[in-house]
Design a protein around this nucleic acid. Structure first.
Lengths: 352, 352
DNA sequence: TTGAAAGCGCTAACAG
DNA sequence: CTGTTAGCGCTTTCAA
């Protein structure tokens, strides 16, 4: 049936093709398999001599424990699921690095789930999680797993530890790791106002999005703190993508009475918007200032270089992973962690 | 010890907290566990009645097979490892989608390994692979796993099916999925030449890189086909990153005798380079033309929009996954697949 | 501190 | 077509 199967025992040049098992190590070290297991998991409960012999045997054989067997017995997978809305968004890559680093140090592996806006994918990963392939999950998508798929069967209940990262999940009683979106947006708005801008447009994220709601609050706060009136006409809808930025640019170009500054709530939108303004013959920042949010890689090489809000992406990932590990190991975990952002001043904003 | 552990049996509101096992389904369907297993794996070998009862019982209980037990018994993980040099590079995200799609349809999951230029990470994933956590791997990093870590112990031999994607691995007898880098680079070079450019600079990738060698050959081919002489001074070293593009730009700005066109072998470099040229007061494409390679998302919204080579990223991913699945299921797999690229003409290149 | 022994939940070999 | 049975390799009581 399986015609690529290799024969099991034969030794080629002294190297057995079959993987070393715990028994082989035990035999070589002249101890029981239980002792080998303990030498690895709880070395302090094994005599130094036995431990040394086991370690030597492991080194000699290149033994690596079989994870399936370990998982089956201990009911722990040492795997964590990371759920994100869109892997293509460069914003996530550094966060993933931070997560992976911290997880790795604690002996956990990471499985990435790119939802890609597909409900089936979400159902799939919910089932995956329910099947016990992971010990916990970090959610970057702003909501919990969908519960069941079109009523067939019981919803597989998810009972593993969860952590929400970046997009808080209101109502869910799990640790939330995030930045203070409201304060950051307020700060940028005030920065623009302090430079003399009195007509500051706001390009939003998707209306349902929690980040959007917080950043919009911040925009309002900033306006108020700068004693600027709120003008609904200056709020332009977007969804964080390049394309929506391009569309917002068209909207602005078409206006008689243009704002002097535009605060885009993502760098992607700012870059798309700048392109449209530029094509229409507007000079940035001479004619109009543009600010972004996130500080992705391309923000610094955009033309002009983008003034934006930097999120501590790696640290966000690390903090989320740490919180999850705490939970996984039965330690208490902080309910909410807020990391600081930074206002990065470049060339796309000028004073008026 | 584990103070977050839940009690095992108690039923809350009729729902058992403990996961359903194959035994529960068997009992409910009034068949043996073997029949349940067969109804799932080889339905044609089970009578329609038995199958119906099993399916019903599964629906009723929400049974999901325990993957650890399945793996332990069958020695198959239904997991594939994808090794990439840098997850932050936007070039890879669509490829990953293509891989994931195809894998998913065939019932395989995907684990991503971001090497991030770290040899330890590589050793870690080599061990991971050797430990039998995955059935096969797709390598996007241009080489096989490092063999052992500083001589301690035997090198864990990797014997699972592998596929090389994008960066071919010379000498390795595994399927290679790639584009024709040489032809694509030649085409771009000839495109520039056909527009009247006679001094075409080439910003390279890392010298050791196989892609670089192929693209450089293509550049030479294109020059020859256009009856243009090769001038070593026009080859500027790069490493595909934004920063190296910026540096290449400085090099060009500093020259007395500037090329009229620059062919960058990655879009990142082209974007970094354009920024430097722009800052130095050069107009693109009026003063100097710039071309890229890859067609990443930002190429279309760069200022000016970048003329480049589009790679069929999703299809590349799909083809690699298909080839690996063939191998995994004992079918013959094509040794080499080359997908077509496309010349995308935008605004960063003008005729001379 | 150590070993013996009992499974974790599943699939595959072997009968029937 | 179906059931019985024997493990896959490990961790974890339990007893010494």
């Amino acid at each position: 049936m399986d015609d690529i199967g290799h024969t099991d025992r034969p030794e080629h040049e002294g190297i057995s093709v079959r993987a070393t098992r715990i028994q082989d190590v035990a035999k070589l070290a002249d101890v029981s398999t239980a002792t080998v297991s303990r030498a690895l998991a709880t070395p302090e409960r094994v005599s130094p001599e036995a431990r040394a012999r086991v370690l030597e045997a492991i080194a000699k054989t290149g033994y690596v424990p079989n994870p399936a067997a370990r998982t089956l017995r201990s009911q722990k997978t040492y795997m964590v699921l990371v759920v994100l809305p869109d892997l293509a968004n460069t914003f996530f890559s550094k966060i993933l690095r931070g997560i992976e680093e911290t997880l790795f140090e604690a002996g956990y592996g990471m499985i990435i789930s790119d939802l890609d806006g597909s409900p089936e994918k979400e159902a799939h990963f919910a089932a995956f999680t329910a099947a016990g392939r992971v010990d916990g999950a970090i959610l970057l998508n702003g909501h919990l797993f969908g519960q069941s798929r079109e009523g067939e069967g019981k919803p597989a209940r998810i009972t593993i530890p969860l952590v929400a990262l970046c997009e808080g999940i209101p109502g869910a009683d799990i640790p939330q790791i995030e930045i203070d979106n409201r304060a950051a947006a307020s700060r940028m708005t005030q920065h623009l106002a302090s430079l003399g801008h009195r007509s500051i447009a706001y390009v939003s994220g998707p209306a349902i999005n929690i980040l959007e709601r917080e950043r919009f609050q911040g925009y309002m706060d900033g306006l108020a703190a700068s004693r600027l009136p709120f003008d609904p006409a200056l709020v332009i809808p977007g969804d964080y993508t390049i394309e929506s930025g391009t569309r917002a640019g068209q909207d602005i170009v078409a206006r008689q009475d243009r704002p002097t500054a535009v605060f885009c709530t993502s760098d992607e939108m700012a870059i798309g918007l700048m392109r449209t303004l530029f094509s229409a013959g507007l000079r940035i920042p001479a004619d109009i200032s543009v600010a972004g949010f996130d500080d992705i890689e391309f923000a610094g090489v955009a033309e002009p270089a983008l003034t934006t809000i930097r999120q501590p992406r790696r640290e966000l990932g690390q903090a989320a992973a740490s919180a999850l590990i705490d939970l996984l190991q039965g330690r208490p975990s902080p309910k909410r962690i807020r990391l600081e952002t930074e206002l990065v001043i470049r060339d796309s904003v000028a004073s008026r």
